[in-house]
Design a binder for these strands. Structure first.
Lengths: 228, 228
DNA sequence: TAGATTGTTAATCGATTAACAATC
DNA sequence: TAGATTGTTAATCGATTAACAATC
């Protein structure tokens, strides 16, 4: 079985010119993960009207060492002001550029149960440029009902929706027993990233990424450090 | 490192070094995080009736290098059988012991909206020994309704519930605007770990841990590696 | 036995951290 | 100026990997 992290010898050609070449290769897994977390805090801080933020404050919210935050950021430019901190709004757009996720991305949500409705009506995805463009369900009695701005459609429309809206991300908010079959359909339709809210272990081809939400695992981890 | 022998009893002996010595075999952050992830996959594999699992299979699901998995596990004992793999059920209980989270833990769920109902009716927490022993909401019209085996109670009962059930974990499934006030109440009631499903940045005392669910951040991270 | 997979070593690479000069 | 905080260095620590004997 192939290691999913295996490098296949395909070096990406240099993109834009000078700047892209300077920050040339892709970020390491760790840096990308931390950058994403900084972005979460910054996005929320911006919402709350905060204008500047120090590496120490970012550290308090992300639990990442403040020296490391400064080091992560300084690798891409001198974004901060000594004695003051970082401008929240400017840093948000810098990190979005670094993560190359500054644009809008369409996602399809599968499952219109309680969880699906909670996701569709929250703005946790919208705040980061993800737009739910379709909500699908297998339950005929739900088809046609609306959640927010969307109308629930039948899962049979999956392939058409994915193609029409150029969707690369699918969110699975369905029972574990139904997850694998729907994952297969998502893969068949061309989705490359699956966000799995069920507890099922999904088998997918190597070019598809599955991210499984596991709050209980996160709790176990937190509990360990509380108990010891 | 200084002599690890503890001096007994002194109330002032609370420096980091002493704590580290007292909990000498505390796992590193990385090991504890990976162990939790192995546990998630194993729990699910067990559910599916799988009897043994190889380090390579665990690697495929967790994206952790298989050598590292074997190394993490062999630090605590020889759990595997050469040529065969690990017994799923035995490994689950070994890791639970290692993480010291083999017991049952009571949690309180705040918020009986769509998200709260989704959480209460799923078994993602139950599978890992977490039991929702109370569901609270501020909305008077919801009080008294039942979700699964639980009846929705008013948030005013929070302190009493936390004390009666010896709860250390609180799950916040409420709108961002309400989150900080409820976090304050949880802290006041003695809860030490808060699982935050809202996007609010929560301020809590240093002895309380906040874990914020951020699916959009996870998606950004996955998207980065898809786009590059 | 033959094939598979663990447990372990040793070397390298990357991440993390404390400390502090620079400077706003 | 005085205080605060960044940007950077140097040392340490943990992760990753290849390799392979042990053994089921």
């Amino acid at each position: 079985m192939a290691n999913p992290e295996m490098i296949g010898g395909s070096l990406t050609a240099t993109r834009d010119g000078d700047i892209a070449a300077a920050a040339a290769d892709r970020l390491s897994l760790g840096v990308a993960a931390r950058m994403s977390r900084y972005l979460q805090v910054l996005t929320q801080a911006k919402k709350m009207g905060k204008e500047t933020i120090s590496s120490q404050e970012l550290s308090d919210y992300t639990h990442v060492n403040s020296t490391q935050i400064r080091r992560d950021l300084s690798g891409f430019g001198k974004f901060g002001k000594r004695g003051v901190g970082y401008n929240v709004e400017a840093l948000v757009s810098q990190i979005r550029k670094i993560l190359r996720t500054a644009g809008q991305h369409n996602i399809v949500l599968i499952g219109a149960g309680h969880l699906g409705q909670a996701i569709a009506s929250s703005d946790i995805f919208a705040d980061h440029g993800f737009k739910v463009v379709a909500i699908l369900d297998a339950d005929a009695s739900k088809i046609g009902a609306s959640i927010g701005a969307q109308i629930i459609r039948h899962v049979d429309e999956l392939s058409a929706v994915v193609e029409d809206e150029e969707i690369v991300v699918g969110v699975l908010a369905v029972p574990g027993a139904a997850a694998q079959a729907l994952a297969d359909q998502l893969v068949g339709a061309g989705v490359k990233i699956i966000f799995n809210y069920s507890d099922a272990l999904l088998g997918v081809p190597p070019d598809v990424t599955v991210h499984t939400s596991s709050p209980a695992v996160d709790l176990l981890y937190a509990l360990y450090f509380y108990l010891t």
